[in-house]
Design a binder for these strands. Sequence first.
DNA 1: ATAAGGTCTGTACCATGGTACGGAGTCAAG
DNA 2: CTTGACTCCGTACCATGGTACAGACCTTAT
Lengths: 135, 135
Amino acid sequence: MRELTIAGLARAGGVGVETVRYYQRRGLLETPERLGSLGHGSGVRRYGEQDVSRLRFIRSAQAAGFTLEQIAELIALDATDDRTRARELAKERIAALDAKIAEMKAARDALSRLARACDDGSGGPCPIITAFEPS
Amino acid sequence: MRELTIAGLARAGGVGVETVRYYQRRGLLETPERLGSLGHGSGVRRYGEQDVSRLRFIRSAQAAGFTLEQIAELIALDATDDRTRARELAKERIAALDAKIAEMKAARDALSRLARACDDGSGGPCPIITAFEPS
DNA sequence: ATAAGGTCTGTACCATGGTACGGAGTCAAG
DNA sequence: CTTGACTCCGTACCATGGTACAGACCTTAT
């Protein structure tokens, strides 16, 4: 454990080094002490499994639509045991996610209709703008 | 037709006046001539049904994940009859949408698991970060 | 022991999608 | 014919989530 340099951590999380540093600045990832090979405290930072899983969590939570600020709260929350708040945030996000998913499905269907209408075979119109009008 | 002022158009589209102007600057909405009550060309711009439906289209397309730049292309495309390109864009976006929807469903399920785990009833743990790990 | 390549810090810059504001002009009601 | 609300225009500013240096330092292989 604690064997990765920042580049390794970034690779493991599928992000760039600068992004890791950015998350550190935002308080989403820790910035461990710089450890020299002889303990003189001015070496390089090392990261381990904890950090990798935290980084992956950040990416997943982003995919779930949480902002970085909310993710910071989730991480803080993970350390405490405030189940009530955790559930609250989860439920809020589930509702938002459900709404967004429905919206995207509707958009998907509109696009699907559009693609079919604009098939070269049919001689009909291919009206992009009206394709999104409430059908 | 062509009876709305910019505030009316904005209201009809559910956006702010500044947003309408922004879309005009981006070339997504037209900026008609300023018409004075006596035709002296220095009055106020008026907007009609076309503009409203265009504005609504912009919002829907945004919900579908198109960027404003892509939306500009869609609008331009709507005027031409390039069915091939229209289909292409639609299909691209459908694929992206499908991927995103799947991702969001996965996130939703992770959150759902989390909310259940953090139910006050269960005495178990309420581990936010690990809730997102590939189950 | 030196050179190459990664790290660290600070700061600057970027794209996207707005939002705000000052100052001048215009319109509509009283 | 004034007053208040709205419009127009230009420009500045904002939040979010990064991305990109430069210059100094550290580590590692040769």
